[in-house]
Computed example of a mutant assay.
Amino acid sequence: MERTLRAAAVVEAVSLVILLVNVFTVHNEAITSFGGPLHGSAYLTVIVTTLLLTSATGTRWRAAIPGVGGLLAVRRLTPGD
């Protein structure tokens, strides 16, 4: 389950960067049509996976931050970082 969180966190962050670059440069509708749902799905996966993995409130609210929340949650869950 932790691998799922890591993968979803990376997809969430990368897709947000791609969407923002697209909006501020060429605004290609195909990128928006594919990237928007991908980002939203990854965001929801991060939230649900974090809820299933931990009961720590600090980790849960970090996961709810759009874009970087998954990376923050992974960092909080990984011991030794």
Rank of each mutant, 00 (worst) to 15 (best):
Y43L: 12
H39S: 09
H27I: 00
A73M: 06
S15D: 10
A73P: 05
G67K: 09
T59D: 08
H27Y: 03
A73K: 03
S33K: 15
T45F: 04
N22I: 00
E12W: 09
V17E: 12
T59H: 05
L19T: 06
P79M: 01
T4A: 13
H39G: 13
S33V: 04
T4P: 01
S33I: 04
T54C: 10
G67T: 08
G35S: 14
V10L: 14
P66D: 06
P66E: 04
V74N: 03
S55K: 15
S41P: 01
F34D: 08
E12F: 10
N22A: 07
A64D: 00
R62S: 06
V21L: 15
L52E: 06
L71W: 02
E2P: 01
G40M: 13
R75T: 00
P66Q: 10
G36S: 15
I65F: 01
V21P: 08
L5C: 05
V21Q: 13
D81R: 15
G70Q: 06
G58M: 05
T50I: 03
T57C: 05
A64H: 01
H39L: 07
H27F: 05
M1C: 02
M1R: 11
L72C: 05
G69A: 12
T54S: 15
V48G: 05
R60H: 07
A63H: 08
P79C: 00
F34W: 13
V17L: 14
V23W: 13
S33P: 00
R75E: 06
S55C: 00
A56T: 08
L44P: 01
F24A: 10
T32H: 09
G80H: 09
V46K: 09
E2Y: 03
A7I: 12
D81Q: 12
A30I: 08
L71N: 08
T57V: 11
T50S: 12
N22R: 05
M1E: 13
H27R: 15
V26K: 14
T4N: 13
L19C: 05
T57K: 15
T25A: 11
T50F: 03
P66N: 06
L52F: 05
L72S: 04
L77R: 08
R76D: 15
A42T: 09
E12N: 13
A13S: 15
A8C: 10
I18Q: 08
S15G: 10
L38F: 02
D81F: 02
A64L: 14
Y43G: 10
V11E: 12
R75G: 01
P66H: 03
R62L: 15
G40L: 14
R60K: 15
A13R: 02
T32M: 11
N22L: 02
G69F: 02
R75C: 00
R62I: 00
L51F: 03
G58L: 10
V48D: 09
T25C: 04
L71C: 07
V26G: 08
H39R: 13
G70I: 02
R3M: 03
T54A: 11
L72H: 02
